[in-house]
Amino acid sequence: MACNIDHTLEDVEKKLKSQSDYVPVELYRSSLNFLQGNPTQEELNEMFHLLKKYDLVSEDEKLERDKKISALTR
């Protein structure tokens, strides 16, 4: 899903924090580490969209997003 908005590191950190009760603990930690590692703009945008409305998506969608977040933060 392409987006025309470039999300800042701060935007992504806020989004991660707002979804922290819903994202699995390991993924939350790996995401925090990932954000400290100077991610590219493309990676920031992808992470933001994977976290966006995470709490509202179906369990199947969460599993799919978890896989993508895991791949992104490796």
Rank of each mutant, 00 (worst) to 15 (best):
K52W: 12
L56A: 10
N4D: 11
N33F: 11
Y54F: 09
R65M: 10
S58P: 05
Q41K: 15
L72R: 03
Y22R: 03
D55A: 12
E59R: 12
Y28F: 15
N33W: 09
E10S: 13
Q41L: 10
L44H: 01
K67D: 04
D11C: 13
K14E: 15
N38Y: 04
P39W: 03
K62A: 03
A71V: 14
N4T: 13
D66G: 02
S70D: 07
E26R: 03
L51V: 04
R65W: 12
L32W: 02
A2M: 09
E26Q: 07
E61G: 05
T40N: 08
P39E: 07
R74Y: 13
D11L: 07
R65Y: 12
L27W: 11
K67A: 06
E46T: 07
I5M: 11
S70M: 10
F48M: 08
Y28I: 00
F48G: 04
Y28N: 01
S31M: 04
D55W: 00
N33E: 14
N33M: 13
L16F: 04
I69P: 01
V25Q: 10
D60M: 06
C3H: 13
Q19T: 02
S30N: 07
M1W: 06
S30T: 15
K67I: 10
A71M: 10
V12C: 01
N33P: 04
L63H: 10
E64K: 14
G37K: 15
D60P: 01
H49C: 14
R74S: 06
A71C: 07
R65N: 03
T73H: 09
R29H: 13
V25G: 06
D55L: 04
S20G: 06
Y28V: 01
L9R: 02
K15C: 08
Y22M: 07
S18N: 14
N38I: 04
P24V: 00
K67F: 12
I69K: 01
K53A: 09
R65L: 10
V23E: 02
R65E: 06
E43R: 10
A71H: 13
D66H: 10
D6Y: 11
V23H: 03
S18P: 03
Y28H: 02
L35P: 00
D11I: 09
V25I: 11
